[in-house]
Amino acid sequence: MNRPETLPGRETAAPAGGGRIEVRGLHAWFGTHQVLHGIDLDFSPRQVTAIIGPSGCGKSTLLRTMNRLHEETPGTRLTGSITLDGEDIHAPGTDAVRLRRDVGMVFQRPNPFPNMSVRDNVLAGFKLNHEKRKDEREILERTLRSAALWDELKDMLHKPGSSLSGGQQQRLCIARALAVEPKVLLMDEPCSALDPVSTNKIEELIFELKKSLTIVIVTHNMQQAARVSDFTAFLMVGKLVEVGATRKIFTSPEQRLTEDYVTGRFG
């Protein structure tokens, strides 16, 4: 059932920045409850990969293994390997903190730091990595621009993060993640709490961002998966059912299950 590695068109040479993730034989547990049963998947630079599947099938868990957030929940366990640009992210001596600076994440519900200003929110992660730098202002403007927020927010940089609309908050969270200059951006249903206009803005943003990043997006919205992604992976009860070019998954999938799911016959 698992359909690993080589897919046509996925062999594009990694750009200078890197950001290629390879997941091999990944099993994950919450306590004794096994959530992922041997996942093999690749995520290539400058590509958007959508992960779809019914609720509870392990999409978020898969995402959270890739920046090692999974292990922050007590009682969790995992086997198998994940590599970022060829390096095992779980190898002894590998620092989860360092990894997360390369692999950014945007959550389902916007989670800006409510008592911090817009400016401090954007620079929060950046300041962790860099000593006080003169170009803070420049980074601020650049990341806000790339999150399509600059024009809206340039006059309210000192307002608290919580004073923004939900859509702005989510884009603020994207800006916050971008300011750390990650190679990979994990997005866990980034639009599920947003209105269509904000959703649209974020999808446009994804198009921009994929020019320089590896993007993995979990979504329950088939239209969205079809619109934004180059590849789609379909998960069910912790197993990878099928992965392939998005067009193929949505028009002529190889598995019956996939077809049923993307046409809405179940799930």
Partner: peptide, 20 residues
Amino acid sequence: AQREAALALGATRWETTRMA
């Protein structure tokens, strides 16, 4: 979610406490 926001930015435990 607040703690995870900080962790996901590459914050250490102490930085997470301070930031989130």
